[in-house]
Write a protein that binds this DNA or RNA. Sequence first.
DNA 1: GCAGGATGCTAACTATTGCAAGCAACCTGC
DNA 2: GCAGGTTGCTTGCAATAGTTAGCATCCTGC
Lengths: 147, 147
Amino acid sequence: MASLNVGNLGEYLREQRRNAQLSLRQLADAAGVSNPYLSQIERGLRKPSAEVLQQVAKALRISAETLYVRAGILDAERDRDDVETRAVILADPSLNERQKQVLLQVYESFRKENGFGADEDADASADADAGADAVVDGAESAKNPQT
Amino acid sequence: MASLNVGNLGEYLREQRRNAQLSLRQLADAAGVSNPYLSQIERGLRKPSAEVLQQVAKALRISAETLYVRAGILDAERDRDDVETRAVILADPSLNERQKQVLLQVYESFRKENGFGADEDADASADADAGADAVVDGAESAKNPQT
DNA sequence: GCAGGATGCTAACTATTGCAAGCAACCTGC
DNA sequence: GCAGGTTGCTTGCAATAGTTAGCATCCTGC
């Protein structure tokens, strides 16, 4: 029954929270749960319910599905989706081959960043950059366009 | 907090179960939960956890996503047959929102480069100018904002 | 030095999930 | 009429999800 991959999920959540520059309390507040509880979730001590998971996802502005996949709840989706994304990019007539490659590389490195690397990439610490060096120069400026 | 549309979910589940010609006990057994509990879920008296929901979905051979959507946990925002690059990127659960935006910006600027104007709606982030050539650069900036 | 605020964590508690046991109502066949 | 099977449901009870209150630690500013 314990199909919930709580440890993994917790780490991922914490990572995403830090990434979003939020404190435990801030996120807990935004997600409508108590901060000790969020703390316990992040440390893998509790299995959040579907609702809580969704609230948190919303608050972090990441897809609830991503969280569910991380939690081992929505399993096989990963393949279907990434295969599809790749296929669609490759099939796009408005891009040339080089561009497709670049786009795919960016896509891959993002996925790696999120822990969807190859198969079982529990630790994001595996420097994701190493392989996919082709990422947007403006990744940051993209979301913070204070030019 | 009660974002779970349990009543609706329960009805749907019962419908699907009957549809599959299964008795309560049979489905409960296949899903690895107790039959009284399944009964309560179907009647909207209990909110199944993420795990249980998944087990049931599996046993019924319906997508867990469908159940989650019914339960009001996932938004039904996926138009899967629409083979459009933007749509597919946006629907990809392995990317977070920021990453999707970045990817879309790259995509848009590639298209621009090729003479395809932003044909439909070039999303708020129209600033994407940046020139797609600036693309290949620091993977780090993306995930490690403050070096 | 120490007020005041933010950080994350622990402990004790309540509410809810999910279960085992058992119930009544319905079928058959005998 | 009643065994033996199914159907779905009710009732306690154990486990655990999630809360409120409060702790220790790190910052600052004074």
